[in-house]
């Protein structure tokens, strides 16, 4: 198509495409993210009341949230909540859990090893790769310069 340049077309596209309704998505993200973190806070305080120290309580809280998100993913509910909550469900550790569980569930059809096992980290894998890499670089800096 020689009578239309990609640049000009992109302008037309911008005009024709409806914008994301940020006035809805952003408050929802705040609300859902806030609620998930509040549940986390309540868990953490409960575990501390039961005698755990802060660090143990914090780790147990993460594990609890990971479990809940995994279960809701299995029950076909998490994606429906996240449809409304958006980043409010994605950014907390629940989003990481969902990113691990959903491909495992989806690709079970291709077998327990090459499906479930191999595909489990197709989405969440990069989080581990870049998280660990960043931490190792930081560790080297710590060791060399006593950061």
């Amino acid at each position: 198509m020689q009578w239309m340049s990609p640049k000009e077309y992109e302008k037309m596209n911008q005009k024709a495409s409806p914008p994301t309704p940020v006035w809805k998505t952003v408050p929802m993200a705040f609300l859902f993210g806030g609620i998930i973190c509040t549940i986390g806070q309540l868990c953490s305080m409960l575990y501390q009341n039961l005698g755990a120290d802060l660090e143990t309580a914090s780790a147990s809280t993460s594990i609890t949230l990971i479990f809940l998100a995994a279960l809701l993913t299995g029950l076909n509910v998490f994606d429906k909540i996240a449809k409304i909550g958006g980043a409010g469900c994605l950014v907390p550790i629940t989003g990481f859990s969902n990113a691990v569980v959903s491909p495992a569930l989806e690709f079970k059809a291709e077998g327990l090893v090459l499906g479930l096992g191999a595909k489990m980290f197709v989405i969440a894998g990069p989080v581990i790769v870049y998280g660990i890499t960043a931490s190792v670089i930081y560790g080297i800096l710590c060791r060399l310069f006593g950061w």
Partner: peptide
């Protein structure tokens, strides 16, 4: 709630 919510707003 406040800080957790704000982190999510940035994500959104």
């Amino acid at each position: 709630f406040l800080i957790g919510g704000l982190f999510c707003v940035v994500g959104q």
